[in-house]
Amino acid sequence: MKILLLEDDEALALGIEFTLKGEGYDVVRCSLYSEAISTFKEEAFDLAILDINLPDGNGYDVCRFMRKTSDIPIIFLTALDDEVNVVLGLEIGGDDYITKPFRVRELVSRIKVILRRVNKENIELDCLKSGDIELNKKTAGVKVKGEEICITAQEYKLLLIFMNNQGRVLGREVILDKLLEGNGGFVDSNTLSVYIKRIREKIEDNPKSPRYILTVRGLGYKWDEKIIKG
Rank of each mutant, 00 (worst) to 15 (best):
L80Q: 13
L47E: 07
K178D: 15
T78F: 02
G131Q: 03
R110H: 01
P101I: 06
L170S: 07
V84I: 08
M163N: 06
T39N: 12
Y97Q: 05
I114M: 03
G171L: 08
L50V: 11
Q154N: 15
K138Y: 12
L128K: 06
G94V: 08
T139A: 11
C63S: 09
I49P: 01
E121C: 04
I161V: 08
G59D: 03
D56K: 00
S38P: 00
C150T: 15
V62E: 06
E148L: 13
V174H: 10
I149E: 08
I111V: 11
K120P: 00
A140I: 13
I175V: 15
P55I: 09
R116W: 03
T152E: 12
L159P: 05
V142W: 05
L135V: 14
L125K: 15
L160T: 02
N58W: 09
V62Y: 04
E35A: 05
D61R: 01
E173Q: 13
G146I: 05
R172D: 11
C150W: 10
E106W: 03
D61L: 07
F162Q: 03
I111A: 00
T69I: 14
G131S: 02
T39S: 13
L135P: 07
D126K: 15
V104I: 14
N165V: 00
T69G: 14
I98C: 04
I92E: 10
I75Q: 05
L90V: 08
G94A: 11
R103E: 15
E121A: 11
L125H: 14
R168H: 12
E106S: 12
D61A: 05
Y60M: 03
I161S: 00
N122T: 10
I149V: 14
K41N: 15
L80N: 14
N136P: 04
I123D: 15
G57S: 00
R172G: 08
G141E: 12
G171H: 06
